[in-house]
Design a protein around this nucleic acid. Structure first.
Lengths: 111, 111
DNA sequence: CAGTTAATTAACCGGAAGGTTTGATACGTG
DNA sequence: CACGTATCAAACCTTCCGGTTAATTAACTG
């Protein structure tokens, strides 16, 4: 994945409103009005959040009369998962010590 | 995990310089000067990035004479992985169709 | 103590983010 | 066609972000 793409995806996820929107969409496709309901903000604000999510490829939009239903597109999250995955060994115990040891060796501080 | 925390972690990851710093730190603890070397930006800029990473809990800092070595702290990435994990079924094929079907049922459009 | 190295803080700047209100657009209905 | 509904676009405001330079702190070295 292009680095730029990770930028916009991580950027899109760095906002609680947008994560809440994704959580709602995980329950199924819905309209902008319904998405906006739980939030104490204007419709245009929600509309902007949707644009950010769309730019990140995290949602797609249809057309149904006046409505433009949103649906979750989770594919970019696979890239996020993959990126995070490369750091898994660092939080899954006991590697810290090993790394520490290797670093010590590297600096000639071996006992 | 508190939602706020995900905000700052995702926010910290939404920058290529900061992800590159994490990648470098995955190879081992190092100094600010060495971290800054690959980037076409001033030391204070890097220093700021480090502060963002530290605030997100993604790095910690020591003290070694004049140097303040940085080390990777991957724990917050476990929370990110967990968050992303909840969406896994959405990108791992064939669930889309199932979801679509469930949604249809939910709206009383069952055949 | 004077000087050098490592890193941060402070003050500043331009542009992007997140919100608002107001006006436009597109569509279905009478 | 006139009207209501759903949504977006424009203009604007304020705050945050990522960068700069210049000054400061902290620690070692002669």
């Amino acid at each position: 994945m292009i680095d730029d793409q990770l930028d916009v995806v991580f950027g899109a996820l760095a906002d609680p409103t947008r994560r809440a929107i994704l959580a709602r969409l995980a329950l199924g496709e819905t309209t902008v009005t319904e998405l906006a309901a739980p939030f104490a903000m204007s419709m245009p604000a929600v509309s902007k959040h949707l644009k950010v999510l769309e730019r990140a490829g995290l949602i797609s939009r249809g057309r149904n009369a006046q409505q433009r239903p949103c649906r979750l597109e989770a594919a970019p999250l696979a890239d996020v998962a993959e990126w995070v995955q490369t750091y898994r060994r660092f939080w899954e115990g006991s590697f810290d010590r090993l790394d520490e040891h290797l670093q010590d060796l590297q600096r000639g501080q071996q006992a």
